[in-house]
Write a protein that binds this DNA or RNA. Sequence first.
DNA 1: GTTGACCTTATACCATGGTATAGGGCCGAC
DNA 2: GTCGGCCCTATACCATGGTATAAGGTCAAC
Lengths: 134, 134
Amino acid sequence: MRIGDLAKQAGVNIQTVRFYEREQVLRQPPRTSSGYRSYSDLDLRRLVLIKQCQNLGFTLKEIRQFAALHDSLPSASPSDPKPLQAILRMVEERLRLIDEKIGGLRDMRAHLLELIAQVRRPAGGECPGRKVRR
Amino acid sequence: MRIGDLAKQAGVNIQTVRFYEREQVLRQPPRTSSGYRSYSDLDLRRLVLIKQCQNLGFTLKEIRQFAALHDSLPSASPSDPKPLQAILRMVEERLRLIDEKIGGLRDMRAHLLELIAQVRRPAGGECPGRKVRR
DNA sequence: GTTGACCTTATACCATGGTATAGGGCCGAC
DNA sequence: GTCGGCCCTATACCATGGTATAAGGTCAAC
C-alpha cells in the first residue's frame, strides 16, 4: 500500500509517517520504480503499535529501542548475549517505572474521587443534619 | 523562603519556577522590599505536587486547571454552580483516561514480562526438561 | 495530452516544557 | 567599600514530536 493509505488507516498524518522513517522508528520501505514508498500490512500494524505505545507515555526514542528489541528477537543468537542483556535491563527498568506510574495514577484517581465527593456534597447549611467527613 | 531555596528543595531549576509563574501554574508570590520573591511551605508543597502530576503524564495546562479547581474549592459558592459543573466533567473525563492508561500499562507490562521470559528461555535444546509457561 | 489526485524532497514552522545568558541590583561578611 | 553569592528582568536558545509549504514528478481517467 502507498503512504496515503497507510497514514489514513493508522490515523496519522502522512508527514508523520515520513518523520518516523527519518527518526528510524519505522523502517525504510521498498520503493516502486517511480520512487513511491510501498508498505505492507505489517508496517501498518507496527505504526498502530507505535501510536499505542506513545499513548502510554513512551517516547519515540524508547519506542525505537523497543522496535529494535522486537526485531532482534527471532535471530537472538546465544553467541552474543551482551546486547540482549542490555535490552533486558532496559525492559526491567521500564517495568519498574510502569508499576510506579500505575500506583501514582491510582492515588491520583482516589484523590480525584474524593474531590468529586466534596464538590457534590457542598459544606454549609444546605444539608443541616449531615456531619462533615473526616 | 527565597526562590533558590524553593527550587533546591523541590529539586527543580530556578528558571523553571519563574517559568511556572509566567505560565500561571504557580501563583505570583509576595515580594520583599527589594523585589525578591518570597515563598511559603505551601508553595513548596504545591511545586512538589506539580512535579508529581507531571510525572504521571499531565500537561502544565491540565495542572493549571487542577490548581484552579483546588483553589476554588474552599469558596465553592452554591450561587454559581456552572463553572463547578464544568470542572466536574473535566475531572470525570480525566478519571476515565486514567483507568484507560492503567489498563494499557498493565497490558504493556504483561507483554514485556512475556518478552523477558522468551529472551531468558531461548528456544532450542538448551533446557530440555522444561515446560513452557502458560 | 491534459487534469486531478497522488507521490517526491527540502525546508520552515509550530507548541510544549523547559534551560541558558546578558546585564544589572541587593546584601552580609570582611 | 568591595567581594561573593544571591536575586531581578529580558531575551535567546534547546529537544521533542510533529505539521505545513514550496516546487516538482507520476499516473489513471477522460
